[in-house]
Design a protein around this nucleic acid. Structure first.
Lengths: 145, 145
DNA sequence: GTATTTATTATGATATATCAATTATATTTA
DNA sequence: TAAATATAATTGATATATCATAATAAATAC
């Protein structure tokens, strides 16, 4: 087996892990006790209110069980609230609390800056190319599974 | 904040997660109870015998504590053995057992095929470009951290 | 309209990750 | 060489992930 560490998959994994660590470090500077994923949940709920836990899980690429527990944790920490969802009693209406919204406002600029710093020196076309190549791989994976 | 789900970082994360799942599914078909990371450890130790746990952790991009437990698990399952490491008593010499080697031989073709399927339709140049673009991001992350 | 199937969420068991603190050994330095 | 510092690995506490199963509600089939 040629060294797995020299494959492009290793580079992909390394990049996303470094990016997550980088983002996490910068997030914590301005808001202790928040994780990258929690920030994403707050943002998603702000932009698409009324999503189900399953839908949020899908967007964050997580398991629904993991999402149950993550949201539970965020409710405990006062960032989210769960209200009854009239049309479907299996679900809840999940909303950021005032505290959650305040946190989100604080972290948005950090998230934007993180992305900007990480993509420094890449042209729009390069970012587009990167996306396109990754999508080719994704297509292969879906076709073969 | 523009939707995080539309950023290239989301695509990167999605790609590596899908690739891991894809690999895991195919691995399990021929060898129950082995994970992608365990396969990588076996392979690394075969190609670079005598690495320390810390070095292996670095290559797999994991914490040393996680590596301690992972290796512990693989020893319990009979895939690895830990021998005394003469020059430095803090370390152990970690080696695949016969069973571990046999497993590795079985899975190598699967790993190679996984990679091939995932990269189907991409030219060598495209793979090279993908790598280069990711490395640009990695450089940014390192410089800014 | 009841029974069956499907969908959403929650839970239990287990595995893995992360961070801090600890232990044992090596290395440096004064 | 003794003391201080650094390194490799382990452990404990906590968080998160994953898979199977269960509980509840909704949708569909009969």
């Amino acid at each position: 087996m040629t060294m797995p560490l020299k494959t492009v998959f290793y580079t992909i994994e390394k990049t996303i892990k470094e990016y997550r660590k980088f983002s996490q470090r910068n997030l914590i500077k301005i808001e202790k006790h928040i994780t990258v994923d929690q920030a994403l949940v707050l943002n998603i709920l702000k932009e698409q209110p009324g999503l189900s836990q399953k839908e949020i899980a899908g967007l964050l690429y997580k398991d629904v069980a993991a999402m149950t527990r993550m949201i539970e944790g965020m409710v405990k920490k006062g960032m989210l609230k769960k209200l009854p969802y009239p049309e479907d009693k299996r679900r809840s209406l999940i909303q950021p609390t005032d505290k959650g919204e305040a946190i989100l406002e604080k972290i948005i600029p950090v998230v934007l800056k993180n992305r900007k710093l990480a993509l420094e020196g890449l042209t729009e076309e390069e970012v587009h190319t990167l996306n396109a190549l990754l999508n080719k791989i994704l297509t292969n994976l879906n076709r073969n599974s």
